[in-house]
Amino acid sequence: MSRLIQKFLPPERWKVPVLITAGILVGILAFLFHISRASSYLSDKPETCTNCHIMAPQYATWSHSSHREETDCNSCHVPHNNFLNKYYFKAKDGLRHATIFTLRAEPQVIFIKEAGQKVVQKNCIRCHEHLMTDSRMMVFSEMNQRERESRQCWECHQETPHGRVNSLSSVPYARVPLPESPVPEWMKTKN
């Protein structure tokens, strides 16, 4: 192991410049970590999703819905069948979002993708199971089971919970906890 490290060590007289260069590299990585609020992505807080300001309409509509009382974004939008799958899906979806946001490729109106739909549908059932498996309904209506298993909840519940209007400009004055300037106060107020 120490021999492996030995191989990458610079010549004696280059040590100082190499240290500085490596410091710059690590420093920039740390800076990236800080300004992108990378650590917040491990949490379940809805404020994490508004790290990207284009999620403001989704946040605003959720925070005006009854789902606000019981759920956060992750309750519906990541799987909850096991711990690993949750973080795998979150990383996959999050990195895609981050890439699109960085490339400025976001559409004016954001629609959920198929993978996300499957997750949301499962999560509707996860909480509302007792509403959907009413054995009396199964006796009365032969369609009941078929409909229940083949359709998505929001085919009817269209406005739950984000409403119908979701374009980037649909809620111009909503109070959404968007990230504020990362420049610390003491740097701004000195004059």
């Binding site: 946001f101 960085t102 990230p179």
Partner: peptide, 14 residues
């Protein structure tokens, strides 16, 4: 470059 892109998009929010 990536850092400045993140800063730029964060600044938009402000």
């Amino acid at each position: 470059l990536l850092a400045s892109s993140i800063i730029e998009r964060r600044t938009e929010a402000v």
